[in-house]
Design a protein around this nucleic acid. Structure first.
Ligand SMILES: [Mn+2]
Ligand SMILES: [Mn+2]
Ligand SMILES: [Zn+2]
Ligand SMILES: [Zn+2]
Lengths: 169, 169
DNA sequence: ATGAACTTGAGAATCATTATCAAAATAATT
DNA sequence: AATTATTTTGATAATGATTCTCAAGTTCAT
C-alpha cells in the first residue's frame, strides 16, 4: 500500500469551458441540492469534478487547502454527504479505512484492488449484475444496492514478487 | 433495522459431545493458534461455536459476560482477531458498523441484507464466483479475495410496505 | 513448586466521522 | 446599499469501534 495510483477523472465529456461557464455549472449543482452557494462548496466541487477519479475526504481537504487555507474538515464531510445523498457522488465505505468517493456521472462499475500496491482497477460486468438480480429475486428480495470489491495482486513484477514470497495466507 | 434475526449456527455437523469432549475440541483449536488455553478463550470459543451464526464482538462480550462477569472487551477483540488471522472465523467489516464475524467451517457464501429489518440471508452462486475469477484474470490480477454484499428489501409485508412508502431514493 | 513467557482487564489512545454552537456569510427584501 | 432571516462555517468536543499499553495475574514446561 505504498503509493496509490490516481486515475484521471472525466476522461470524456464536454471539453473546454470558460472559468465562468464552469462556475455556473458548479453553482447549478449546488442549487440543485437546495444549498447556498459558498466559496467552500465551489472549491470542493471544482476539485471533486476535475480531480482524481477516486478520492477521500482527506484528499479533498488537502487539495482545497492549497487555495483556501481555512477550510474545515467538517465542511468537506458535510458537503460530500450532501452530494452523495443526492447521488452526485458515490460513497463507498469498506473496512476501517476512510470512505472512498467518486463522481457518479460515470457508468456503474465495481473495483478490483491490488492488495500489494493499492492500485485500483474499475470493471463492469453485466453478467454478474444480472446474476445478482436473480439471486435476490429467488430469495424474495427486491435488490436495491450491492457492493462488489475484488482483491488480488496486480501484474507488476514488484507485486508478483511480493506475493510469491509471502509467508502464507 | 429494528430487530436482527439470528440464524442458528452449525445446523449440521457432529452431534452430541460430552462437555469434556467439547472442551478438548476447543483446547485443540486454541493450541493450533499457538496460544495458551485460558478460561476466557474457552468461554469465547464455546459461544462462537455454539451461538448464532453471525455475531459481533459486542454479542460475544455480552454472552460471555453472563458467566464471566469480568471479561474484557480487549480480550474478545484480541481473540477474534487471532481466530480470523488463522481463518477459523471470517470477519467482515462494512461501512461504519461493527464488524460481523462468523465461524468459517461453512462453505463460502455471500450475504443479502434487508435494509429495512436487518434480516441477513446467505447465498452462494458459483457462476458469480467464476465470473469474478475471469474478471480478475482478464485484468492481469491474481484474485485473492472478494466482498459481495447485496442489499434489498425482504418479502415481509412490513418491509415491503416501508419500502413502497419510502420518500424516494 | 518455580519462573519465564504469555494473557488479562482497565483505561487511554486512535481514527474516521458527526455533532455543537457561536461567529461569519448568503440571499432575499427594503 | 442597508437590513435581516436563514444558512453555513470552522474549531472543537463527542462518538463509536477497535487497538494499544502496561501492571497484575495466569499458564505450563521443567
Ligand atoms: Mn470507481
Ligand atoms: Mn454468513
Ligand atoms: Zn500491485
Ligand atoms: Zn426485511
Amino acid at each position: 500500500m505504498s503509493d496509490i495510483p490516481l486515475l484521471p477523472n472525466h476522461q470524456s465529456g464536454p471539453k473546454k469551458l470558460t472559468p465562468e461557464q464552469e462556475n455556473q455549472q458548479l453553482k447549478k449543482i449546488i442549487r440543485e441540492l437546495g444549498l447556498k452557494v459558498t466559496q467552500q462548496r465551489m472549491d470542493i466541487l471544482r476539485i471533486v469534478k476535475a480531480g482524481d477519479r477516486h478520492f477521500t475526504a482527506q484528499d479533498i481537504f488537502e487539495a482545497v487547502s492549497e487555495t483556501n487555507t481555512s477550510i474545515g474538515f467538517a465542511t468537506v464531510y458535510r458537503f460530500l454527504k450532501a452530494l452523495s445523498a443526492k447521488a452526485f457522488v458515490t460513497e463507498v465505505r469498506m473496512g476501517g479505512m476512510p470512505a472512498r468517493y467518486e463522481w457518479s456521472s460515470q457508468e456503474h462499475h465495481d473495483h478490483l484492488t491490488c492488495t500489494v500496491c493499492g492500485k485500483v482497477v474499475e470493471f463492469e460486468n453485466d453478467e454478474i449484475e444480472k446474476l445478482q438480480e436473480e439471486v435476490a429475486k429467488s430469495l424474495g428480495f427486491v435488490l436495491t444496492d450491492h457492493i462488489l470489491e475484488l482483491f488480488g495482486v496486480c501484474s507488476s513484477s514488484h507485486c508478483q514478487k511480493v506475493y510469491k514470497s509471502a509467508p502464507e495466507s
